[in-house]
Simulated assay, not measured.
Amino acid sequence: MSSLTVYPLSNYSFAVKEQQLEEDPSVVARLQRLESDYEQYGMRRTVEGLMIVHEHGHPHVLLLQVANAFFKLPGDYLKPHEGDIEGLQARMHARVGPEDPAIKSENGGDSEMNGGGSYTAQDWEVGDVVGQFWRPNFESFMYPYVPAHITKPKEVKTWHLIQLPERRILTVPKNMKLVALPLFELYDNAVRYGPQLASLPALLSRIHFVYQD
């Protein structure tokens, strides 16, 4: 059984940086670009990071909230021939890393005092794979397996654990929110969060959480 050291949510400070607009304005546009990219590069590989904190000894997952309705994990698709680890490190840094070393946190402290510092993409500690989802066609549905009749899936999404340090500033684009959702909120709640995020509590059940105060 894999272990993950988990620190309290209160250990982390939050700051704001310039907004990051979605590359595609709609799901239809995203699927159209996926089809175009597939013809040129083949199957898309997407990586996302699972940042876990705790409150009162219960695991919470840090999710990005967009437009008060859509929740997602930080990450994005990889470039051709880009490795999963370095690719996810770069995308975690781009999404919730510092905008600059002198950025101010929302509680008024500077990054050095709050464990932020001028860390780099390589400072994101990428851990075990927790799950994978496969997109068999140019459609919105993804599955935790490759259907038997599919020989050329169009996308694979891989979830990695992220070992957060004891303290860090997480810097969020101003058009998003970073929310901490408890596992009991996600469990069996596909109507609110979709089938992938609703499966997180089951996927994380094999992880031994080591809680630190």
Score class of each variant (00 low, 15 high):
Ile169Thr: 11
Ala94Asn: 13
Pro173Cys: 10
Gln122Met: 10
Asn175Gln: 08
Tyr41Val: 12
Thr151Leu: 12
Ile162Pro: 01
Ser13Glu: 02
Val53Asn: 02
Val130Gly: 05
Glu166Ser: 10
Asp123Ile: 00
Gly115Gln: 07
Lys174His: 13
Gln20Ala: 14
Leu200Glu: 05
Ser13Cys: 12
Ser26Ile: 10
Leu73Asp: 04
Glu155Phe: 01
Pro195Thr: 07
Asp100Ala: 15
Asn114Leu: 15
His93Glu: 06
His208Leu: 09
Gly108Trp: 08
Val191Gln: 15
Pro80Ala: 03
Lys154Cys: 07
Ala121Leu: 06
Ser199Pro: 06
Gln122Leu: 11
Met1Ile: 14
Glu35Phe: 08
Gly97Asn: 01
Phe133His: 03
Val130Tyr: 05
Asn107His: 11
Gln196Trp: 08
Arg44Cys: 00
Val28Glu: 10
Gln40Lys: 15
Met176Glu: 13
Leu178Phe: 06
Lys104Pro: 03
Asp100Gln: 15
Leu34Gln: 08
His208Cys: 10
Arg45Leu: 06
Leu31Trp: 09
Arg44Tyr: 00
Val191Trp: 14
Ser36Asp: 12
Pro173Met: 10
Gln19Asn: 14
Gly57Cys: 06
Leu64Gly: 00
Glu48Tyr: 04
Pro59Tyr: 01
Ile207Asp: 03
Gly42Trp: 04
Gly131Met: 07
Val129Met: 09
Ser111Ile: 13
Leu88Pro: 01
Lys152Phe: 12
Gly83Lys: 09
Gln40Cys: 13
Ala190His: 12
Thr171Cys: 15
Ile103Asp: 06
Met1Cys: 12
His93Lys: 03
Val156His: 05
Val28Leu: 07
Leu31Ser: 02
Gly131Lys: 04
Asp100Thr: 13
Tyr77Asn: 13
Ser118Leu: 13
Leu34Val: 08
Gln212Ser: 06
Lys72Asn: 04
Asn11Lys: 07
Ile52Trp: 04
Ile52His: 02
Gly116Gln: 02
Pro8Asp: 00
Met1Phe: 10
His160Thr: 00
Gly97Val: 08
Lys174Pro: 05
Ile150Tyr: 06
Pro59Val: 04
Val146Met: 09
Ile169Tyr: 04
Leu63Thr: 06
Ser105Asp: 09
Leu161Ser: 04
Gln65Met: 15
Glu86Lys: 11
Leu62Thr: 02
Gly116Asn: 03
Gly108Leu: 09
Pro98Thr: 00
